[in-house]
């Protein structure tokens, strides 16, 4: 029994059918953790990208180092670090929040790069043309650069959301009851790992296919010219 739902071990099909609602409860947690982690990554990445762009080396250089460091170290260790080290400094978070935070921290290194590349991909001539029209630096960025960068940034971010979903099972090590953990617990209790784990694989395939399809639709819907902000 898990989440108050009993399983039926009489036949394989009955077993699979009875654990499906339990796995779907896990899937809800998976999606919640993905989304929360994604928003943390979007914010933290923007912060890192902005700091990296500061002309002062004393700010830009550490920001670049942190980005590289986060990108080159495993999510699992970052998660353990947050989970075990934060409480030593009096910060006690529920496992779910720690997990989502770890996802956000790891992926902020990637999103920072997406912001940077998206803005850099706008042709130089655009900036020069805006300056020639005597637009201020700030207005140039808001009205000329950003609208053109957004169409490159959004689809790339969408792909990272899909990647984050696939990393959520790592949170099972700090007891988050996401899909894989749920399946593992069912396996531990029934000694039947084959059915729950195979079902998790299939559900994952479904989840990422739907998410990837969503990203593609979003990509084709975005006007290639850019999005005016007003």
């Amino acid at each position: 029994m898990l989440f108050g739902i009993e399983w039926d071990t009489s036949t394989s099909w009955a077993f699979a059918w009875s654990i499906l609602p339990i796995l779907l409860r896990g899937m809800v947690v998976t999606i919640q953790a993905s989304l929360l982690g994604f928003f943390v990554a979007l914010g933290l990445g923007l912060l890192l990208a902005s700091l990296k762009g500061v002309p002062l080396k004393i700010i830009a250089w550490p920001a670049a180092f942190i980005t590289e460091f986060l990108r080159d170290t495993p999510l699992l260790i970052q998660l353990f670090f947050l989970y075990y080290v934060l409480p030593d400094y009096g910060i006690v978070l529920p496992a779910f929040l720690t997990g989502a935070l770890a996802l956000g921290v790891q992926y902020s290194a990637y999103t920072a790069e997406v912001y940077r590349a998206g803005i850099q991909a706008v042709p130089r001539g655009q900036k020069e043309a805006a300056r020639a029209l005597n637009l201020s630096e700030r207005l140039t960025f808001i009205h000329v650069i950003l609208p053109q960068a957004v169409v490159r940034i959004v689809p790339a971010m969408g792909n990272y959301l899909v990647s984050i979903m696939k990393d959520v099972p790592v949170l099972s090590v700090v007891t988050v009851l996401e899909m894989l953990n749920v399946a593992k617990i069912i396996g531990d209790r029934t000694f039947n790992y084959l059915i729950p784990l195979t079902m998790v694989g299939a559900l994952y395939l479904l989840l990422t296919l739907v998410a990837a399809w969503g990203v593609r639709v979003l990509d084709t819907r975005l006007p290639k010219r850019g999005i005016p902000l007003k």
Partner: peptide, 13 residues
Amino acid sequence: TSLLVQLFWLYFA
């Protein structure tokens, strides 16, 4: 699918 799912599948299932 997720790497950890693949790893557990190969190990347990």
